[in-house]
Amino acid sequence: MSFKSAVITFPGSNCDRDALVYLKALTNGEVLNIWHEENSLPNVDLVIVPGGFSFGDYLRSGAMASKSKIINDLINHSKKGGYILGICNGFQILSEIGLLKGALIQNKRLKFLGKNCFIKKRYQSDFNCLINKDQVLKIPVAHNEGNFYCDDSDLKYLHDNELIAFEYCEGKFSNSIANINGSIDNIAGITNKDKNILGMMPHPERAFQNFHSSQDGKLILESLLS
């Protein structure tokens, strides 16, 4: 069965091409690029909301993009059970829309963080089913606002419903603490209640080719396809 997918581009998106390359390399179906001013999404299995600095990240990261024309149909897509993957700025946008719990605030050390980080699976979903428990993935992060915050009741909700997909952890020869940005409970990525939407700060689309410093990013798309 052919797997169709799309990537939305906002003004200021800068990982849209990377996401398109990732999808084209690892899926067998059509891959479309959708401009944020479109009214509707084509009929696809997966939509990636890519990284970048949509609308300059002015006001708050993802705030303006969350009000774009295309968002209504993105919400429809999710209601129909379609998959959505928000990466970095895409995660921030999905939080701003309200499709995911919590918010992403400035990194605890107040600095942009661009490096490889290490994550592992917390609770199972279609996005990480091929990943073993305790398997450590090396995937780059590149963000200034990746510090996941939610209040206690939302945190309980995330745990009770097993919605935490990924958490930061220590890596081999890692020169850093596990929690790179101050996120509550080391959260690196969460899903919605139906587990068809994943938002994550690390960039799997920068870790899949043989010349990348890691190929672990493949596992997320491959899990979805399995």
């Binding site: 708050r60 939080s95 918010a103 915050y149």
Partner: peptide, 8 residues
């Protein structure tokens, strides 16, 4: 609607 994210 836009200016404030009341979660944070």
């Amino acid at each position: 609607k836009l200016l404030v994210n009341e979660i944070i």
